Simulated scan of single mutants.
Amino acid sequence: MTGTFTTRTVDVTAGSAETMHDLTNTCSAFLREVAHGRDGLLNVFTPHATSGLAVIETGAGSDDDLLAALREVLPADGRRRDRHGRAGPGHDHMLPALVPPHATLPVVGGELQLGASQSVVLVTTGRDVPDRQVRLSFLG
């Protein structure tokens, strides 16, 4: 059986505030174009030091709760220093250790297999880069 690999980069405008951007519809549209009813895996990756990807319920408060929890765990209070001893956005650069920059998700019959309340979201705490990229890759 021969598999196919298809990849595409999509641009996301995250803005200048911490945010969660729902990518579920973007992922599903990509799979409709490339999966052609096949089973496989969708890998989602963001190449930014201050972003991560989560599979989480959105719209019921969990998204706000996640951002609040990240503010508690990674406070922007200036305690983190760069290699020159200056206060900086070190808290934002620690985000991918807690919310990884990748997710690999099952695809069955060409469709993303998420639970009823699950969404794929880009989590961004860095305020310095309003435009982000996300790479979608299907292997099936």
Score class of each variant (00 low, 15 high):
D131Y: 03
S119D: 14
R32L: 11
R38F: 00
V134M: 13
L114N: 02
H93N: 09
G109A: 00
S119K: 08
G40Y: 03
E111R: 11
A68D: 12
L112H: 05
G115P: 15
G37Y: 09
P101M: 01
A60D: 01
A49K: 07
P89S: 14
D65T: 08
G78N: 09
T125A: 06
L114M: 06
L95F: 00
A35R: 08
R83A: 00
S62I: 07
T124G: 11
D128T: 11
G126T: 03
L95P: 12
L41T: 11
A49Q: 07
R81A: 09
A35S: 11
A116K: 10
D131E: 12
G88T: 10
G59R: 10
L70S: 07
G59V: 10
V134R: 04
A35T: 09
T58S: 06
T104E: 03
F30P: 07
A29I: 13
P75D: 06
L53R: 00
S51L: 05
R38E: 07
A116Q: 12
E111V: 05
G52Y: 01
S119P: 13
R80W: 13
F30D: 12
L136P: 15
G59P: 15
P96M: 03
H93L: 05
G126F: 00
H48W: 05
G85R: 02
R135N: 12
L112W: 00
L42E: 11
G88V: 09
L41E: 07
Q118M: 06
V55W: 02
A29Q: 13
T125Q: 12
D92Q: 05
V99F: 01
V123W: 08
A97C: 04
L66Y: 07
T46S: 15
L67K: 00
H93G: 08
T124A: 08
H36G: 15
D65R: 06
H36Y: 13
L122F: 04
L114F: 03
D92S: 14
A60H: 02
T58W: 01
L66T: 09
L31A: 07
R80A: 07
D128A: 10
G109Y: 04
R135F: 05
L42M: 09
L112T: 03
G85A: 00
A35W: 09
P96Y: 01
T46L: 12
V129K: 00
V99A: 04
T46F: 06
L105H: 00
R135L: 14
G126M: 09
L98H: 08
L53I: 12
D64C: 03
A116H: 09
L74D: 08
L70C: 06
L70Q: 06
M94N: 02
P101E: 03
P101S: 14
V134H: 09
E111M: 04
D64Q: 10
P101A: 12
P96D: 02
L114Y: 01
F30R: 08
L95C: 01
R127Q: 13
V55L: 03
A60V: 00
G37N: 04
V120R: 01
H93S: 10
R132Y: 06
Q133N: 15
P96W: 02
R83Q: 08
V44W: 01
E111S: 10
D63N: 02
V120W: 06
V108F: 15
S62L: 09
P130A: 10
